[in-house]
Design a protein around this nucleic acid. Structure first.
Lengths: 204, 204
DNA sequence: GTCTATAGCGGGATAGAC
DNA sequence: GTCTATCCCGCTATAGAC
């Protein structure tokens, strides 16, 4: 049946849109760019996705899911605290090399977006993860297994150490001049260092 | 003399351009936006700044200077190593609250910019700072005053911990829903925590 | 220096032929 | 489903009156 076959064109558009939106942003990408990069035309894009904003939302939601939701399972797991922290960090450092531009894309587009779009995201993604993390940390501090570090500071440090290296890659490669392959290797090696860094800093 | 008086219009345009470019990016900002936000018109903007790209470059260069060059004095200073690290971190946490959107602006626009612009920046800002930092760290490691941490990993961690909190503020306030004033207070308080975190993690 | 008018292009969206 | 043609708008840039 023609209806259930993937059209091919639709997938190509989605792929091209992903690359362009993620590397050049919403405002820096036009439907015409997407059409020519996917070897189709403007009418195809409009036919399958109605509007630029609608297509963008599909790409953005997937990116947001990768950056935030896929990691939440680790944080809400019942692993012992130190292992949970280690898993949290390693999960990011194993996931993000496949999507190195996602952290910059998501955080940057949230800054550029009008309130309407951001509100939609906020509604879909409540603070459950953050609350759960908060509970876990408070327990451990009470037990004395880690030194008393405010939840906000530890959480922000971990996110900083996991996401920033990927957000910095454009600067490192394009401005400082480190070859991309070399930077990627350095970041891959950075994972264990971040784990050590965090666990050492948490020792009572 | 009329020539040496600030025109007023020119300054208003610069101010409006700064706000718009920094919050909405190059592609998301039009000359018309800048003209109306500065209570002037398109011709004024063109008269004083010739082109959108030229005006952008002025704003970008200043932002780049704030983010990178103003801190370099600390790194190249002759302070004892631990004090230098502490000064480096505190300098960022004292400077960036005045320019909270600068880290995201600079790193994001570098990703979006064509090679031509990025090359210009790279030429102006060689890797001197990075080399100097590298020397300092290697000395300390040889002396045994800090544990042997690769230069790249420590440098990247410090940049991560100092810049990311500001890059994350849009997410925290708009998606997680933390009020901006509260987030700012948390980040202000975060400074000493980052210093402790880094120094603890460096202990031999 | 200031401002209007407009050129010339590229943007998103739409209509309708096939 | 596919594709061309086109509308209408906003964009940067320019010319030239005052």
């Amino acid at each position: 049946m023609t209806k259930s076959q993937p059209s091919g064109v639709k997938d190509r558009i989605l792929k091209a849109a992903k690359e362009l939106f993620i590397s050049k942003g919403f405002a820096g990408t036009s439907i015409r760019d997407i059409a020519s990069a996917s070897d189709s035309n403007v009418a195809h894009v409009k036919y399958y996705f109605q509007s630029k904003a609608n297509l963008f939302e599909i790409i953005f939601d997937e990116a947001f899911d990768i950056l935030i939701n896929r990691v939440s399972a680790t944080i809400t797991s019942d692993l012992p605290f130190e292992e949970m922290i280690e898993r949290w960090i390693t999960t990011y450092f194993e996931l993000l090399p496949h999507y190195p531009q996602i952290p910059m894309f998501v955080l940057s587009e949230i800054n550029h977006s009008p309130d309407a779009l951001v509100d939609k995201i906020a509604r879909k993604n409540p603070e459950k993860i953050f609350n759960r993390l908060s509970e876990r940390m408070e327990e451990e501090i009470k037990k004395g297994t880690i030194r008393p570090v405010p939840v906000f500071d530890l959480g922000l440090n971990i996110l900083s150490l996991c996401m920033f290296p990927f957000m910095f890659s454009g600067f490192a490669t394009r401005t400082v001049g480190i070859p991309r392959s070399e930077y990627n290797a350095l970041v891959a090696n950075h994972k264990q260092h971040v784990v050590d860094f965090v666990l050492r800093a948490l020792k009572p």
